[in-house]
Simulated assay, not measured.
Amino acid sequence: MISGDDLERHGRPKSSNRTENYSSSSYAHTETYWTSWLIPVFVIANIAVFVVLMYINNCPKHNHSRIYGKCVARFLGRFSFQPLRENPLFGASSNTLEKLGALQWWKIVHGHQGWRLVTANWLHAGLIHLVANMLSLVLIGIRLEQQFGFLCIGVIYLLSGFGGSILSSLFIQRNISVGASGALFGLLGTMLSELITNWTIYTNKAAALLTLIVMVVVNLAVGILPFVDNFAHIGGFLTGFLLGFVLLPRPQFGWFERHNLPADVRVKSKYKAYQYVLGLLALCLLVAGFTVGLVMLFRGEQGYKHCDWCHYLNCVPTSKWECNNS
């Protein structure tokens, strides 16, 4: 999460124009700060789904494999975890994840179970996976919801998860995938586009932009490790990045004070021209991306056939590990 001093401090522009020469305190007084409730609800929902997942998994009853060993934390009864050799993240079996809606290409395309593009975002492979994602959601999501409200951030979160699922399904077709990472990367992408579209109201612009870019690069770099679905990250990030231009532009300060200003300096447009252009372009790209992605997916297209080098976006083989490009 970026420091509030870098991303939220409103400064005084260099322009001498009366409609642009505003102080940070003046602009802050015109903004509405929301009480964050949707992000906590999302966190509670994810935890509740994980509890239900473990209840249905019921390791002591269903684990009959001698290969992986005994259930972990057996004192939890039916909530105990699968053997670590089977699931090192302290979670359920792949069969249970698949049963409850994990992302699986075959069932989406040939089983007509498109709902998995949504449900997979609410499932987590294990307790470690859940805790890491929920901490990230709290750190990033609450601040964004306080600034922009539950409606915008809720739409971004849900659509980013959906976009991540589409891209993941196009490339990962033999394994299952779960997690809220696509939605979380969407919020990260939104932070970057919000900074760009509201560029004029921020101080320390270069530092804020550099910090965000480093965060994005580091997080995406982690995704090239094996067993991490980086396509969900990329799809979610791109969706959130485009939605930020559409949903999160800040009005000009003069728009708030237009009734108190002289007629010759009154601001007639709520947003600046470049904000309208960026928003329209992003909306067109978003609609085109979702349309093309869904058409390719339900036609059974294999993403690697159209981009043979894209496997490097998901995993880079080294002397320490190999990659399963399927």
Rank of each mutant, 00 (worst) to 15 (best):
L261F: 01
L212F: 01
I44Y: 07
W105P: 00
L278R: 04
V218N: 02
L135H: 02
L225M: 15
I128A: 15
F245V: 03
A92H: 04
K320P: 01
L117G: 02
P13I: 13
I142W: 05
S94C: 05
N324I: 07
G141Q: 08
W199T: 01
A180E: 03
D229P: 10
L238F: 14
C71Y: 04
I153P: 01
G154E: 08
I156H: 01
V51L: 15
G101R: 06
F231L: 09
E194C: 03
N46H: 15
P40S: 12
K272Y: 05
F256H: 10
L280G: 08
A273Q: 14
A73R: 12
A207Q: 14
A288M: 14
F227N: 14
L84G: 09
R78M: 07
W37L: 07
Y33D: 01
N95E: 15
Y271V: 00
Q252A: 08
T30M: 07
L286V: 03
G189P: 04
V287Q: 03
H233L: 13
Y304V: 05
V51Q: 08
P226L: 12
C307N: 11
S25D: 12
G254A: 02
V51W: 04
S80Q: 04
G163M: 02
Q146P: 01
G4L: 11
Y276W: 15
S24V: 02
F162L: 13
N204M: 14
L130E: 06
E301K: 11
N58R: 02
V217D: 05
G126R: 08
G141C: 10
T200C: 05
L103E: 02
Q113F: 04
